[in-house]
Computed example of a mutant assay.
Amino acid sequence: MTERPGAGQSRRYGSTCTGAFLLAHAGLLAGRRATTHWEYAERLAADFPDIQVEPDHIFVRDDRPSVLPESQRRSTLAFR
């Protein structure tokens, strides 16, 4: 799947829990660092080898437009 028009122009985008798979399918995590729920981290890495999966992180902040998938099912996601 290719990146959707406009998504690369967004300042910030993110997901919670396994929503990282949606971002990955949309092509938004290619060549980037990301995380997901610990139970699915191996699968994310296997399905998307171009993503540097950080299984022990609660969130990942990238210097490019912020991508913040987080790994806690009941956490809230707040952007500054």
Rank of each mutant, 00 (worst) to 15 (best):
S10A: 15
S71R: 00
H25D: 07
H57C: 11
R80D: 10
R64M: 07
D63M: 13
T76M: 09
D50A: 08
S75D: 09
D47Q: 14
R61N: 09
M1A: 07
F48H: 08
E54G: 02
G8N: 07
I51S: 05
D56S: 15
R33Y: 01
L68H: 00
Y40Q: 10
T18V: 09
E70A: 03
G8H: 11
S75H: 12
C17I: 05
R32D: 00
P69S: 14
R43V: 13
V60R: 01
E3R: 02
D47V: 04
T2C: 04
R61P: 02
R74K: 10
A26R: 03
G6K: 07
S66T: 12
G6Q: 08
P5N: 15
R61W: 04
R61M: 06
A24T: 04
D62E: 07
G8K: 10
A20Y: 08
P55A: 11
L77M: 15
R33K: 02
V53L: 01
P55R: 11
R64W: 08
T76W: 14
A78L: 07
R32F: 01
D56E: 13
F21A: 14
A30N: 11
A24Q: 05
G31V: 09
T36H: 13
L44H: 06
L68Q: 00
F79E: 01
Q9T: 10
L68R: 12
M1R: 06
D56H: 11
H57T: 13
D56Q: 14
L77W: 06
T2L: 02
E54R: 01
V53E: 00
